[in-house]
Amino acid sequence: MTEQTNEQTTEQGSGILAGRTILVAGVTLDTSIGFAVAKFAQEQGATVLISNFGQALRITRRIARRLPVEPPVLELDVTDPEHLASLPEAVREHLGADAVLHGVVHSIAYGNPETLLGGKFLDGPWKDVAQALEVSAYSLKSLAVAARPLMVPGSSVVGLTFDATVAWPVYDWMGVAKAGLESCARYRARDLGAEGIRVNLVSAGPLRTLAAKAIPGFEDLESLWTTRAPLGWDNTDQEPTARAVCALLSDLFPATTGEVVHVDGGFHAMGA
Rank of each mutant, 00 (worst) to 15 (best):
M1W: 02
Q131M: 06
G232F: 10
M174H: 02
C184N: 07
K120G: 12
G180Q: 07
D80S: 15
W233F: 05
D191Y: 04
T28R: 15
D128G: 05
E134C: 08
E43Q: 15
A109E: 13
P72W: 01
L122A: 14
D220F: 11
R61S: 07
V91C: 08
V145D: 10
A41R: 09
A269Q: 09
I33V: 15
L150N: 00
R20L: 10
Q12Y: 01
V24D: 14
R228K: 13
M1Y: 01
E93C: 02
H106V: 00
T209C: 11
G103W: 10
E222L: 11
N6V: 02
Q12H: 08
G217T: 03
P216A: 14
L210K: 08
G159P: 04
T2K: 03
D220G: 15
E3M: 09
P216T: 03
R148C: 04
R228Q: 12
E182T: 00
K120S: 06
V104A: 14
T209Y: 08
G15F: 09
E82K: 05
E70V: 03
I215S: 05
R188W: 01
V129R: 12
P153M: 08
A146L: 11
F253M: 12
S183C: 11
L231P: 01
P169M: 13
G19A: 03
F162Y: 15
T21M: 14
T79P: 09
D98Y: 01
P113S: 10
Y187A: 10
A179G: 13
A179M: 05
P149C: 05
P240R: 10
E43M: 13
T60Q: 14
L117N: 06
D264F: 07
Q42W: 13
A97F: 01
P240E: 13
L210H: 05
D237S: 10
V166T: 09
F218K: 00
F218D: 04
S51H: 12
T9V: 03
V176P: 00
A109I: 02
A214L: 06
A204V: 00
A85D: 14
L17E: 04
D163T: 02
L192F: 08
R190M: 13
R198E: 12
P113A: 08
R148P: 00
L224N: 04
R20E: 06
F53N: 14
L140G: 09
V48Q: 13
G13Y: 05
M151C: 14
H94I: 04
A185W: 08
L76N: 00
I22S: 05
S203E: 10
L231W: 10
H262E: 14
A204C: 01
T227I: 12
I63A: 15
H102A: 04
V104L: 15
Q44L: 06
L29R: 06
H268D: 12
V135D: 06
D191A: 11
A179H: 02
Q12K: 08
T115A: 03
L101W: 03
I33H: 06
C184E: 15
V152R: 15
Q131T: 04
C184F: 06
L192V: 02
R61C: 03
R65W: 00
T79G: 13
S142V: 02
R61P: 01
G232L: 08
N52W: 08
A167F: 03
R20W: 09
I215C: 07
A38W: 09
H268G: 03
H262G: 10
R58M: 12
Y187W: 08
